[in-house]
């Protein structure tokens, strides 16, 4: 439904700003366990950047960036990363989500924990991003087969 905007300003600003937002989103995800931020916020920011492109540009370009069909599977994979890591720690002898048991060789326990948290945050971030985009896409797409 979203047609390409006729205004070059919008197209330009959208294209210009979107990458910066994405970088910021990644920063927020990776910075999550040191300061404010984390998987959810980062994921939401990433989703916002994708939505910006979807709003400003024509749908072909937007699909190039993140295909509509990918929304649900990627969301599921992101959640699976979280659940899977939890399950892995459990299988490796620790408690659920006890990151210290993750099999990263040559690292101190604190670093392993940080790594584990990062992985989980990443999973959550991807999941949130994909899910939010999927909601958007579904809402947009509803009219087409309605």
């Amino acid at each position: 439904m979203i047609r390409q905007s006729t205004s070059p300003i919008i197209v330009l600003i959208g294209r210009l700003v979107s990458p910066f937002i994405q970088v910021f989103g990644l920063y927020v995800i990776f910075h999550g366990h040191y300061g404010p931020g984390g998987g959810f916020q980062g994921g939401a920011i990433l989703a916002a950047s994708l939505l910006l492109i979807r709003l400003c540009l024509d749908s072909e370009t937007a699909q190039l960036q993140f295909r509509q069909a990918l929304g649900t599977p990627v969301g599921i994979l992101g959640s699976l990363a979280f659940a899977g890591i939890g399950l892995m720690t459990l299988l490796l002898g620790g408690e659920f989500l006890d990151y210290a048991f993750l099999p990263f060789g040559g690292m101190k326990p604190a670093e392993i924990r940080a790594m584990g948290i990062l992985l989980v945050e990443l999973g959550i971030g991807v999941a949130v991003m994909a899910t939010l985009v999927a909601i958007f896409d579904d809402l947009i797409g509803l009219e087409d087969h309605g």
């Binding site: 599977p73 599921i76 959640s79 699976l80 659940a83 939890g86 399950l87 459990l90 408690e95 659920f96």
Partner: peptide
């Protein structure tokens, strides 16, 4: 000893894997 978490976890994994299996 992991039972308390395994029960919801099994279901959660099922919820996530079902659509993947369905996509396959």
């Amino acid at each position: 000893e992991h039972l308390p978490i395994l029960i919801p976890l099994t279901l959660l994994m099922g919820a996530l894997l079902t659509p993947l299996a369905g996509a396959l």
